[in-house]
Design a binder for these strands. Structure first.
Length: 425
RNA sequence: GGAGGGGUGGCAGAGUGGUUGAAUGCACCGGUCUUGAAAACCGGCAAGCCGUAAGGCUUCGAGGGUUCGAAUCCCUCCCCCUCCGCCA
């Protein structure tokens, strides 16, 4: 959520930001509604002040035993109250409208973000590793996995529906091994591990920005109306919702493994094969809470921590900075890490690391105090990044580490977890 | 799910209809004292909103109700604790 006052005071800058993002969000509609809201507030508050004043006077009269005088005043208060009730109803509606509108505004891009319309305008930052040249025809993971008996797409459809995955034997173990390698690595580098609920309520989903705008992307339960989390970012960030943190405790570095659930409503026809785009996938997530002064440095650090996982596995990757038009709703700046996928003959997203600035903190009311530096409390900056998407990582291992005989060489870092050096053969 | 108890400022914890937006303690900030620190003492210290400001409004789990006036009384819901039931 943007700061209403900021929008009011920097209308032109916000207009430009929305333009850069390709967002249709209307600054002028907001300004108009906001002005109406403030006008109504001023009006009702005058009456409320009058009521409070009269009530106080009544109290004093009653104490002095002058109830006839008080009775006359009571009549006036009743009148004032009627007026207040009428105006309050109006104000409540306008207030809700303004908030709803503000909730649908995307975050303002950081000045360092390249301007651009879509993914074609993203800027490559760096590359690591060399895509392997095969001296045989490499198989895609959706072919090799089933032929090795470690992935079963058909029966996953029987159990649930399309875009679900069933893994077997060393495939299942590979998934678990990757999760453990990631968690062990991140915790060794100072991230605190959590094990959160994977169903969350509407307030939680609103805090990180999935609601109200992106409800269609989520699975929702009946009855209680809880949502299956689309990423651990949702729960990790909301751990501190409605809290005031101490500056001396910042930055906080959190990590968690969770399954993630996505409707993929708008993704018909995209990445239909394999385990690239599925309704349920595993992810190890990184989340940080930082002061405004350090959040951009923390983003760089998170990018290193996430991409280091691919270096551990020996998988080639590149890092890109998303342009203004390609960034997610709540992000002020985003780096994507893309792993080399032979079946795509290209790099495929495996992590997204974002600094959300105070956008989520304002929604979720996550603040910090620093008595030595300023009075009161301020919003923290929240960051999140995949470290990494496990399913896509498994797919990348299968494809990048395959051999001519259809076996897979287990990356060295995973061997202690796998208990073997080769899958198949 | 049933019975009982409870949800108050960063934390702990008073407060049952009228200057109580809220005692007190801790934490924090400023000062005195001290070579420095601690202790002691003095002072300050909730948040949000409207307003150039003065100031005003709102907020004591959430929502509704009673009243001229509600942290305080009534209703509904949520959450926490204890006991019972159920259960992995």
């Amino acid at each position: 959520m943007l700061d209403a006052r900021y929008v009011r005071d920097n209308a032109e800058a916000v207009r430009a930001a929305m333009r850069d993002r390709g967002s249709a969000w209307s600054v002028d509609a907001f300004l108009e509604m906001d002005e109406e809201r403030r006008r109504l507030i001023a009006k009702t508050e005058v009456r409320q002040a009058r009521r409070n004043e009269l009530s106080k006077a009544i109290g004093e009269l009653m104490k002095a035993g002058k109830s006839p005088e008080a009775a006359a005043m009571k009549d006036e208060v009743r009148l004032v109250n009627d007026e207040i009730a009428a105006e309050a109803a109006l104000l409540e509606q306008v207030d809700a409208d303004v908030r709803d509108l503000l909730m649908t505004a995307p975050n303002i891009p950081h000045p360092s973000v390249p301007r651009g319309a879509d993914e074609n305008d993203n800027v490559e930052v760096r590359r690591w590793g060399m895509p392997r040249t095969f001296d045989f025809e490499p198989q895609a993971h959706w072919d090799l996995g089933p032929s090795l008996g470690i992935i079963d797409f058909e029966r996953a459809v029987k159990l649930a529906k399309s875009r679900f995955v069933l893994m077997a034997g060393l495939g299942a173990r590979l998934e678990r091994s990757v999760i453990n390698l990631f968690l062990d690595s991140h915790t060794a580098r100072g991230y605190k591990e959590w094990w959160p609920p994977i169903l969350a309520n509407a307030e939680t989903l609103t805090g990180t920005g999935q609601l109200p705008k992106f409800e269609d992307d989520l699975f929702k339960t009946q009855g209680e109306g809880l949502y299956l989390i689309p990423t651990a970012e949702v729960v990790l960030t909301n751990i501190h919702r409605d809290e005031v943190l101490e500056a001396s405790d910042l930055p906080l570095h959190y990590t968690a493994y969770t399954p993630c659930f996505r409707e993929e409503a708008g993704a018909a026809g995209r990445d239909t094969r394999g385990m690239i785009r599925v309704h349920q996938f595993d992810k190890v997530e990184l989340v940080k809470f930082a002061t405004p002064e350090t959040s951009m440095d923390e983003l760089e650090g998170m990018l290193v921590d996430a991409s280091y996982m691919l270096e551990l596995l020996g998988l080639p990757y590149r890092v890109i900075t998303l342009c203004t038009g390609d960034m997610g709703f709540g992000a002020a700046k985003t780096y994507d890490i893309e792993v080399w996928m032979p079946s795509y003959d290209g790099y495929k997203e495996i992590s997204s690391c974002s600094n959300c600035w105070d956008f989520q903190a304002r929604r979720a009311s996550i603040k910090y105090r620093d008595p030595g530096s300023f009075k009161g409390s301020r919003f923290v900056h929240t960051l999140n990044g995949s470290g990494l998407a496990v399913g896509r990582c498994v797919a990348a291992i299968i494809e990048n580490c395959q051999n001519a005989d259809g076996s897979i060489t287990v990356p060295e870092a995973l061997r202690p977890y796998m208990g073997c050096e080769v899958i198949g053969a």
